[in-house]
Amino acid sequence: MLAAMLKRLIPSLIVLAGLAWAPLALAQESTGIPAIPAFTVSPASGEGVQEYSVTLQILALMTALTFLPAMLMMMTSFTRIIVVFAILRQAIGLQSTPSNQILLGLALFLSIFIMKPVLEEANQVGLQPYLQEEVTSIEAVKLASQPFKKFMLEQTREDDLALFMRIADVTYDTPEDVSFWILMPAFVTSELKTAFQIGFILFIPFLVIDMVVASVLMAMGMMMLSPIIISLPFKIMLFVLVDGWALIMGTLAASYGI
């Protein structure tokens, strides 16, 4: 019954919509107000170059924002930093201190500090010319991506890059010609490898403390007492005495040549 009523009402709704739209269109024509081009593509200066309307550019920008977290992990130093921080917390024996929010915020701002030269170069070569209407939006994206590509190439191992080139069955004459789709997974693989290498070095002193405390407790016959409870204050004290946070952050920044 409801379906039958809707079927009878649809033609009436269409007619009412047409009647409501007609005065608006006539008023717009009479006042001379131009219509807003919602989706237009016009040729720009340069062979084979097209410029999109502001509406399409905003749509593309809002769509790109959904990929911002993935871009943050795939194209910056964020991955290496957050993995090292997670391994460090595990090595000390702290399960939730510092909290995930603190580690993420610290990794984010340290990543911005490390990536500042790259961001400034991308702003100069890509964003500023676009704001001054010297290049189109597509050209601005290509120009702004070059500093990130250079940064990623400097931090990517040749073995990892060759691995994904072999998987994709492609070859390039120079590393600068490598596609982003090949460079991104190779860069992340190299970042994970470096992060685990740093994490291994971090684990050694804390592991030594755990072994010493476990040996002392066993020699004293205190089998039922957990060595982790006893070793945790000593590991925290060691980390504070060597100024661990400054040492870790300085090491991470130095690993990128800063």
Rank of each mutant, 00 (worst) to 15 (best):
L225F: 14
K149A: 08
D169C: 06
G244Y: 11
L59W: 00
P175W: 11
T97G: 03
M211T: 13
I236N: 01
L9E: 08
G221F: 06
F196C: 02
W181A: 14
P69A: 02
G105V: 04
L127I: 13
Y52S: 14
I201K: 07
L202V: 12
S30V: 04
G221V: 07
I167E: 11
M74N: 15
S96A: 05
Q132P: 00
L65D: 04
I167M: 10
I209D: 03
Q155M: 14
P117A: 01
V208D: 08
T174L: 06
P23L: 11
G48L: 12
I201A: 15
M152R: 06
F151T: 02
T189Q: 12
E47Q: 08
W21T: 09
Q90P: 01
S42L: 14
L225E: 05
V49T: 13
V125Y: 03
G250R: 00
P23I: 03
I230C: 06
L247I: 01
S53V: 07
N123E: 15
F67V: 10
Q50G: 02
D177S: 14
V54A: 14
L127M: 10
L241C: 05
L110C: 07
L26D: 01
L16Y: 12
I138R: 08
G93Y: 03
K193R: 13
S53A: 15
A144F: 01
P227F: 03
Q197W: 07
N123C: 02
L6D: 08
A64K: 10
L119P: 01
D169I: 04
S45V: 09
M220K: 05
A186Y: 00
Q132A: 13
L238M: 15
K142L: 11
L2G: 09
D160K: 09
V49F: 14
M165L: 10
I204R: 08
L163H: 06
L108P: 07
L217I: 05
L59F: 15
M75D: 06
M223K: 11
M218A: 15
F180Y: 13
V84S: 10
V15G: 01
I14R: 08
S145F: 15
E139T: 13
S111N: 15
W181V: 11
T66A: 10
A27C: 09
S77I: 00
F187V: 00
L72I: 07
I201Q: 11
Q197N: 07
S12D: 04
V208Q: 09
I58D: 04
E47Y: 09
L153H: 08
T136I: 05
R80G: 00
L94P: 00
F206I: 10
I81W: 07
L103W: 00
V41L: 12
P34D: 13
T251G: 15
Q101Y: 02
T136P: 01
L110F: 05
M165S: 05
K142P: 02
M74G: 15
M152C: 04
P175A: 05
P175K: 11
L131D: 09
V15R: 10
T174Q: 11
G250M: 03
I258D: 09
T63M: 14
E134M: 08
A91E: 10
L6A: 10
V216G: 06
Q146T: 06
Q90I: 00
A168Y: 12
L217W: 05
S12T: 15
A140K: 01
F239H: 01
